[in-house]
Design a protein around this nucleic acid. Sequence first.
DNA 1: TTGAAAGCGATACCAG
DNA 2: CTGGTATCGCTTTCAA
Lengths: 336, 336
Amino acid sequence: MAKDLKKTPTIKDVATHAGVSIGTVSRVLSKEPAVKAHLKEKVDAAVAALGYRPNFAARALRKNHIDVVGFVLPDITNPFFSQLAKSIESEASARNHTVMLACSYNDPAIEQTHIRALLDRSVRGIVVIAASDEAENSLEIDVPVISLDRQYAKYPLISTNHIQGAALVADHLVELGHRRFAYIAGPLNTEVGRARQVGFVQHLRQLTDDTDPADLIIRPGQFDYESGEKITLELLDVPEKARPTAIVAASDQQAIGALRAARDLGLNVPNDLSVTGFDDIVLAELVAPRLTTVRQPTSELAKRAIEAIFAKTAPDENITIDGKLIRRTSTGPAPN
Amino acid sequence: MAKDLKKTPTIKDVATHAGVSIGTVSRVLSKEPAVKAHLKEKVDAAVAALGYRPNFAARALRKNHIDVVGFVLPDITNPFFSQLAKSIESEASARNHTVMLACSYNDPAIEQTHIRALLDRSVRGIVVIAASDEAENSLEIDVPVISLDRQYAKYPLISTNHIQGAALVADHLVELGHRRFAYIAGPLNTEVGRARQVGFVQHLRQLTDDTDPADLIIRPGQFDYESGEKITLELLDVPEKARPTAIVAASDQQAIGALRAARDLGLNVPNDLSVTGFDDIVLAELVAPRLTTVRQPTSELAKRAIEAIFAKTAPDENITIDGKLIRRTSTGPAPN
DNA sequence: TTGAAAGCGATACCAG
DNA sequence: CTGGTATCGCTTTCAA
């Protein structure tokens, strides 16, 4: 019987309080210009007085989408991905959207489940860092989907220009006089892994002709720390004359592993050996020596991804953004 | 006019297809046992045939909540927090919930905005790592809110037992024969900073009595890497006789900074100096020497948080989980 | 420009 | 145990 049950106020309460119809309230809430100023004021006052907050579920039911963007990624603890997540969250927030996070753990089945779940929740769009490069059948849906960093199905990809970025490393090292290189690759069943390798190797070949040839050993690996450490240990287990003077890793994590291995072997970086990474994760600045690497433009990447979600039409082709060489102290002139 | 506009099927379509009422469909969907088997079968068949997927917005409108848990944290790129996020996501996923992520960047105003936004979206519950320890007025709501790691307003806190964890470090170091210590504290306006300091200092006092006294210098700092490096440089800038033989840092990041500083001064860790951290972030295992530290039980912490969200009643008191000493190579016997 | 009213798709109560 | 139906809170025609 008491009327002050403290129920959260609805649009109807606001209308009553303001003495207008709920249609009018809805209009001022959605900022339609065609509302007389004096009515708008009354509504605004009522909203403030009642502490009204719109019910998103009801709105979603009518409009068929909520102000949420889904973000599916392999692993949030990967420092590069978490940086991307941070930027995605910022961009979405700036547009008054929240982000729903889902981790696929690199399992396409889990990834699929999450995407379905997101779709069921009528998200505004989904950005996904694919679990694998394997082609998958696209969903037949009208919700925008954007691939970030790693391509998902046939959806447009936004990524760093790995080829160009890797070439920067070759420039830098050749300039420092290095001629004996080892390249620790990423997994070659990923486009990222392939592109970085190709970018480095091709450009190195261009820079060093027959009169000034370069030695190059290539070792396939994973993107993680262990891989970098293990491969480096093998690489350096040869007579000094045959040892590479520069180790180029396909990821910062590998490079950091390489740094460890070098230290364990008593080698001084950068005097005896130069090491480079790729990504510019936060740790790159914290290890000793600080890691020379290629910075991925994470915030730009995220920005483009969110823009694509909100654009009326999907980008008609993949978007690629240049990386930037960050010179730190893990690289120096070649020994001798 | 065409009837096959491929509209997504609704519960009504399923009912028609199965020749039952929508009430019945709703019942089998929500797994109510009181449905005759043959009807259930028909419904299941219809669901499969039409590829029906329930509309979450409509459900949310009726039930007043969606299967989402909100997670508000200062910064997803902090390695400890991202670890927590991963576990939170797993636990939520296991309960068929998605997580909405929001970063506060340590700004209470932004934090407040995000929490409001989450509430507006009728989430099932919210777990928050508070932006600051300052007391805030609780929201008057019936959605469960749980504090994780750092207390938010008056909501029950789930955290590591910092006192116990810090005491472990004292045990370890005293056992190794150290008697001259320096403690690099975290910010003392945070409970975490205070608890770790108290835990270490008190236990150290207990272990070392007047017949075998311990020297202890305490320096307040931030939890970050720079702080650790800077303070260590000052700490070690004294005659060798007066130098501490062990530096105990309130966080791994500080400890890693300390490691850098020690190396820059030409000191060998652990021969000349032992260093310890707290958290056990991934990097702790990667630096040289590997860092002895206290591991926070992240997955257990996350598990308890999600359990608390789903529990009928909020925990009546804070939950505290013990940390674990991880012995690595940054600590060794005291010199001499 | 504004008000009235028709749903959006599900849940849950009430009869039968 | 099942079917009908009111209802959740909002957006969006349709008239006035």
